[in-house]
Design a protein around this nucleic acid. Structure first.
Lengths: 128, 128
DNA sequence: ACACTATACAACCATATGGTAATAGAGTCA
DNA sequence: TGACTCTATTACCATATGGTTGTATAGTGT
C-alpha cells in the first residue's frame, strides 16, 4: 500500500477512543461500571455527579462503543462491553506505576497493596 | 484503603495520557516518531503540519512523558521513550480491527495485509 | 387520569484547546 | 559580526468541550 492513501477513518477511530477516555469524569464513570452493570442513577450516586452530566457522558461512552445500554423499565442499564477498556487501564496503570514509583513512595506503597492496579475498580475521592 | 482517600493524582495521570493521545495531530506526530528519532523539522516535513504546531504538540507529548527531547545543535531530536505508546496502539488497533472488520470489508482487507496493525508505523495521508 | 421516578435532551455559559502568524532565542557558518 | 537555520514562545482567534439548569419523554403504580 502506498503512502498517502491510508484510510483516515481508522485513525479517527483510534483518536476517538483515546479522546473519550481522556476525561476524568468519564474515567470515573467507567470505573463505576467496572464492577458490573449499573443504572444511570447508580452511577450518579457512586460518582456524586449530576444526572444530566452522567447521562451525557454515558452517551459519549456508548457512542464510542465502550459501553452498551439496555433499557429496563424506566431505567437504563449501562455496562462495559469492550474488553479494550480493561486492557488499556492495565497497560496505562502498569506504566504509571513504574513512573510514579520513582516519584512517590506513598503511591508506590498503595499500589503494592493492589489498589489502582489493572482492572481492579478504583475508589475515587469524592469532590468536596 | 477506605474509599474517598484515593490519590487523585494517579487518576489525573491516567487521564492525561489518554487526553494527550486523543488528538489526531499528536497521533500522526507520534507515528512519525515510531520508526525512530526525528528532528522537529523532519516531523514537520513528514506530517505536513506547521512548525509551531508540531513544536507545540511535541512539547505536550514530552510533558506527558511519552517522548523525550535531545538538543543537538540547533535541532531538537524527539523520540518515543515510553513503550506504553506502542502497547496502547497495539491494543486499540487490535480492538478496532475486530469492530471495523464487521463494518468494512475494505479496511479488513487492508488490515490483513499488515497495514495499520500494532506497532507498525502507519502511513498518514497528507493534507490536500 | 394522576403523581412519581428515571432518563434523555436542549440551551446556555465558562473554559479549554488546536491552529496560525509573528517573534524571540540559540546555534552554525562564512 | 552578520546572515542563516532551527526551534520555542507568545498572542490571538475560532471552535470544541464539560457542567448545569430546565424541560421533555417514558415507564410505573395508585
Amino acid at each position: 500500500m502506498q503512502k498517502g492513501t491510508m484510510p483516515v477513518a481508522f485513525l479517527e477511530r483510534v483518536v476517538e477512543v483515546f479522546r473519550v477516555l481522556g476525561d476524568r469524569s468519564r474515567l470515573e464513570i467507567l470505573q463505576s461500571l467496572m464492577a458490573g452493570p449499573r443504572t444511570v442513577n447508580e452511577v450518579v450516586e457512586i460518582t456524586g455527579k449530576g444526572q444530566a452530566n452522567v447521562s451525557k457522558h454515558l452517551g459519549v461512552l456508548a457512542a464510542a462503543g465502550l459501553v452498551s445500554r439496555t433499557a429496563k423499565g424506566t431505567s437504563a442499564i449501562y455496562e462495559v462491553t469492550d474488553p479494550l477498556v480493561y486492557k488499556l487501564c492495565d497497560i496505562v496503570c502498569g506504566s504509571l506505576r513504574k513512573k510514579l514509583g520513582r516519584e512517590s513512595k506513598e503511591i508506590q506503597r498503595l499500589l503494592r497493596r493492589g489498589v489502582l492496579v489493572g482492572s481492579t475498580p478504583i475508589s475515587i475521592a469524592k469532590k468536596p
